[in-house]
Design a protein around this nucleic acid. Structure first.
Lengths: 159, 159
DNA sequence: TCTGAAAATGGACCTTT
DNA sequence: AAAGGTCCATTTTCAGA
């Protein structure tokens, strides 16, 4: 599953995770590689799916989505088709940024971004109260987004 | 706080959140604007901080970080400097992708990506057990990353 | 790795509202 | 003034030798 990477790849991944707009010439300088080599490697990393995609990260508070909420959900039944239906519902909801199906005290952890509490209340109606398979849920309101990202560590190793 | 946006901006934000590599000419076709106008608007959105940054999204399982874990943390004291110290520690830890300081049953929610359970165990030592201000924590292991992103909804409105 | 063509970005300048 | 469009120079990407 894990693709073969060398330290050049890892350094490149580190850089483009931080900032995907750095020109390949500059990346070449930073990792000590020619522009063409950087170009080939980035293409390969994208083709292999190591780089899933490139994305603009939008500041939610600037587009009037100032509230981040974490919701934990416990289900009634773990029957596969019921779970799949829930996963699809959660995945489709634009306000749900992340949904993890977890083992432990809860079954789902949702990270949501909303305009205000009213919108969240409305979403709990749609997603939780009107869903027979939701046994209970608990809301955690974020007071501070201390760290928000999808960055994956890439550890430089001795080769 | 929320910047003035029109529907052109919103459509652009939708597009570049999904895929930041679409050329500005193509974006122009999609939103019905000249390339130059797209260019100006994207620059403005970045300057104003609406677009926080551009990032390559790496698939964690491809770089041998197959495990996602959500950890809830309760603190002993909410004294400001102790909290700040914790926030800094969490923010610095490369395996912590996200850290929210929350109100509710817990004080922090952490979303972590790790190589294996051993690494997580080691991290709990460093972050939780060896920190006097951690009263208790609870671990939720993700079995499925149903939806993972930082996308913010941008609602097209009548103007 | 180097070179060069093709593509994309971004500024200058003029026009429209 | 604020924003759009066209045109053009510069920068960047990316393939072939």
């Amino acid at each position: 599953m894990a693709t073969q990477l060398d330290n050049f790849d890892r350094k490149l991944l580190m850089e483009v995770q931080r900032d995907a707009q750095i020109p390949q010439t500059e990346l070449g300088v930073r990792v000590n590689l020619s522009t063409a080599a950087v170009n080939r490697r980035l293409r390969r990393l994208a083709d292999e799916g190591v780089i899933d995609r490139y994305s603009a990260i939008v500041a939610p508070e600037k587009v009037d989505y100032p509230l981040t909420i974490v919701a934990n959900v416990e289900v009634e039944s773990e029957q596969i088709d019921l779970l799949d239906a829930m996963k699809r519902t959660f995945a489709q909801c634009p306000q749900i940024q992340q949904c993890y199906y977890v083992a432990g005290e809860w079954d789902f952890v949702l990270v949501m971004t909303v305009r205000n509490m009213d919108q969240y209340t409305e979403l709990t109606r749609q997603l939780f109260f009107s869903n027979n398979n939701v046994k209970r849920f608990k809301t955690l309101v974020s007071m501070s987004r201390v760290k928000v990202g999808l960055g994956v560590p890439v550890d430089i190793v001795d080769e």
